[in-house]
């Protein structure tokens, strides 16, 4: 595809990534040291005493309140993240509960999941992408409670997919038989969203 791309004369790479980062930047992405914020509406502020997290089939979900959720075994993970708006950030450090842990407690029940969030945001994922040590419900970033604009009290963290799948303000993972599109997926973003295959938009 790039063979047909016109050469932009006078355009040059401005930032050379160090050699040790070779292979860490997916196609079309650039590395940022900032942590940009992108969301479709106002940042919700849910009080912790009104917060809960649920997982499972609709109508028979396992639910934890904040204290119960924080008492679950957690993991510290350091991962690279990739936003569909083209930025990649290396070595982001999170603390959260592995979705494996949550599903072990609730029971695996369905091949797909829809994440539901405060503010009405949704996103869809295969359960296979939430298991096997690949996904967390994270409540701390860089050793601090996760800031509201970055998804606090808790957000989904699925770093191997574009970051819109790592839903901010997540409140439940609803297990389903069908891979129904979520919020951005309904607006033409890719149903799966693998940054290494540059699956930004439907049909990519």
């Amino acid at each position: 595809m790039t063979a047909m791309s016109p050469i932009a004369r006078g355009f040059h790479r401005r930032r050379q990534e160090p050699a040790e980062n070779a292979g860490r930047v997916p196609p079309g992405q650039y590395v940022t040291k900032d942590f940009p914020v992108l969301s479709a509406g106002p940042t919700p502020h849910t009080a912790l005493d009104r917060w809960s997290f649920s997982i499972g089939r609709s109508g028979r979900q396992k639910t934890w309140n904040w204290a119960e959720f924080r008492a679950l075994p957690s993991q510290d993970v350091t991962v690279d993240i990739h936003c569909v708006t083209k930025w990649t950030k290396f070595d982001t450090a999170w603390q959260g509960v592995s979705v494996d842990t949550l599903l072990d407690l609730a029971g695996h029940d369905g091949p797909f999941a829809m994440a539901h969030c405060d503010g009405g945001y949704t996103t869809n994922l295969p359960v296979a992408d939430l298991t096997g040590g690949k996904a967390w419900v994270a409540y701390a970033y860089d050793g601090q409670p996760l800031a509201p604009e970055h998804g606090g009290p808790a957000r989904l963290l699925v770093p191997h997919l574009y970051f819109w799948k790592s839903a901010k303000w997540v409140r439940s993972l609803e297990l389903r038989d069908t891979n129904d599109p979520g919020f951005w997926e309904n607006y033409g973003y890719h149903i799966y969203g693998d940054p290494w295959r540059e699956q930004r938009y439907a049909g990519d």
Partner: peptide, 10 residues
């Protein structure tokens, strides 16, 4: 309230 944000490097 619909929002579109861009970060410092957005």
């Amino acid at each position: 309230v619909k929002t579109e944000r861009f970060g410092a490097t957005g």
